[in-house]
Structures are given as C-alpha cells and as structure tokens.
Simulated scan of single mutants.
Amino acid sequence: MRHSYGPNWYAATMGTGIVAVVLPGLPFHVPGAVPVALVFWLAASLLLVATGAAMLLGLREDPSLLRRHYDDPVMSHFYGAPAMALMTVGAGSIGVAQDLLGSTVAVPLAAVLWTAGTVLGLWTAIAVPYRAITRHEVADDSATGGWLMPVVPPMVSATTGAALVPHLAPGQARETLLIVCYALFGLTMIAGFLVLNQLWQRMVRHGALAPAAVPTVWIVLGFLGQSTTAVHHLGALAPSVVPGYGHALGMLAVCYGVPVWGFTVLWTALALTLTMRQLRDGLPVAPTWWSFTFPIGTVATGSSALAAATGLVLFEVAAGLAALGLLVGWVAAAYATWRLSARVALAWPAPRPAANR
C-alpha cells in the first residue's frame, strides 16, 4: 500500500497552532486563554513531530514520495504547509510557551523554526510555481484556494519574524531583519493577489469548486488576514528600529490593513455561502477541512491588530467572532481527521501470520 500522508497533513499543525496564537492576542480579556493556548501549542508541537515521523515512514516505504508529490499538480502546492507549520509552532514558543520553556529555550527555538520555515517557504514560493510552469498540465478550471499555499509562507515569515526583531541587538542586524520581513511581506502580497485573481476568474467562469475542494476557498483569508497582521506587527516596531522612515511604515498598518480587512469581510461572506451550499449537497470529509482553521485564525489576528492600531470596538467584535469561528472550524477539522485516520487504520494491511514449521 502506498503511504497516504502528504504535505497537506501539516495543515493540522497550522490549524492547531494558530489557536495558541489567537487566544492570548485578542483585544479583550478571555479567562483561561493562556492555559488553553498552551495546551493547543503543545498539541501543535506533537502534531508537528508526528506528521514528520509519518512522512519519514512514508519515505522509507516509498523513497520517491517527495518527488511524486512535487510532480503532482495538486499536492505540490501543499509544500507550503510544512513551512507554515514550523513557523506557527515557533511563534507559539515565544507568544505562549516562554514561561514554560524559559527565554533561553523559547527564543532560540523560535529562531531555528523561523529560519527553517523561511528557507523552506522561499523554496516553495519559487520552486512550486516553476514546476507548474514547466511540468504540470493545468486546465482552465483547475485553480483552487490551494494555489495560494506555496506563496503564503513568506508572509508568515514576515509576521513571525517581527517577534524576533526585539531579541536582536540594536543596529544593522535588527534593521536588516525588519527590512527583510517587509520584503517577504511584499513577495507574498503581490504573488497572492495574482493567484487570487486566477481563483476568482475560475469560479466566475466555471462555477463552484469540486466538493472536496470547496473548503480551500477559505485559504484566501489566510493570505488576507496574515498580511494585515504582518504589516501591523512590523509597523509597531519600525519607528524605533528605523527612525528615519519608520513612521511611514507604521502608517502602512492602517492604510493597508483597513481596505484589505474590508475585502476580507466580502470574501468571508462568499466562502461561507459557498460552504453552506456544499454542506446542503454533501461536503466530503477530507484533509481540506483544515482550511477552516488557520485562515480564520489569521482574520482574528488581523482584526486584533487593527483593534490595537485604531482602538475601534468594530475590530474587537470582528476579532471575537473570528476566534469563535476558528474554534468551530478546529472542532470540524479534528472530527474530519479522526474519521480519515480511522479509515487509514482500517485499510492498513494486517501482519501476516508466521508460517507453520
């Protein structure tokens, strides 16, 4: 039997880890948020290790597994998931697990995971589109939200990299990291809108996505929400790190974030109506259900960021609603994973009895 796990399963780590990031960062007090977030961070860390072990077992069974996934026009896009999973766990190690681990462990761990995730994310942002251009056969109606997966990791690098900037000594190193994070933000912002345009045209011209792919329309929110979060976190640091022009970068948090938040509301309504329509007709249980988690979580972090920047209750309410949506999505995705895991376990071949001597 061929191994059934692929890079798409790292979305479970992303979806669990984002809960640990969202709860403590809400713009209002939630009793027990930090202990609950710590539990989710520990679960995400275990999932990261378990998924990595499952992939290694798959490579032992089939050494060509990674190559086959890379050559697959659908699965290759999900190579962005391992990069984002690494950085999500790293962000949680600073944001919620620092008291547990201690700063001497939490910060280096976050730095290692950020570096690994950033390098892998830059590879996916270049190599997967290159493969699509040179090798994949892509039909006019094949675009899904999954096409955003390889280009979004640099935006996650920009967001999580902001948490590492204050831990560097003032000077060139700190300024360089901040500017690199802004460059990573720009990489995904431009590439993301290009891909979003392709998805929009595909749905308008060819109708709703295939049933199992419908949840991937939520991935667009991951791009939108993560960009709003990144530009805020970087903008909060910019005036003190690069005082010559940091104020202008700080203003970008609102000038960019509010218009994009408006489009996020539109896309949330569209994704919700398309999902409800498919639920009525039957929504197949699939790993794509994890699309209900991380993207919605970034809407919560983006709304929380705008609440901090503007002080408006509007964004506080939006952050709370998105956090509730994230928890509902996590329960749905966890249920889907349990169903699929049980199916895989039942299909696994039983060991052959020893021959009688």
Rank of each mutant, 00 (worst) to 15 (best):
P27L: 15
A110E: 10
V107Q: 00
R357N: 10
P129G: 08
V19M: 14
V313K: 04
P108E: 05
A354Y: 08
Y182K: 04
S93G: 06
T115M: 13
G250F: 13
V22M: 02
A116T: 09
Y79D: 15
A323S: 07
T298K: 13
L249D: 11
C181A: 03
L326K: 09
P243K: 10
A158C: 07
I94T: 05
A110K: 15
T124N: 12
G15S: 14
M75D: 00
P166T: 03
Y256V: 05
G25V: 13
A20G: 08
W114C: 01
R60K: 12
G225Q: 00
Q201R: 01
F263E: 03
T144H: 04
T275Q: 08
G325W: 13
P211I: 09
P211A: 01
Y335Q: 12
A169D: 09
L266S: 10
A238Q: 14
D71V: 02
V96N: 15
T298E: 12
V22S: 05
T268L: 14
T310P: 11
Q201D: 11
T159M: 04
F185T: 04
L46P: 06
V49P: 09
R68V: 11
W114A: 05
S304H: 13
A110G: 10
A54K: 09
A53E: 15
P24Y: 06
G282T: 00
L48C: 09
P353V: 08
L274F: 06
G121I: 06
L252N: 00
G320V: 00
G320D: 06
A355K: 08
F40I: 14
A354R: 15
S93A: 07
H3K: 07
L306I: 09
M149C: 04
R343K: 15
L120S: 10
T268D: 07
V112F: 14
L38H: 11
T134Q: 12
A43K: 15
N8P: 13
V138E: 03
C255N: 09
T293A: 04
I94A: 09
A12Q: 02
L57P: 00
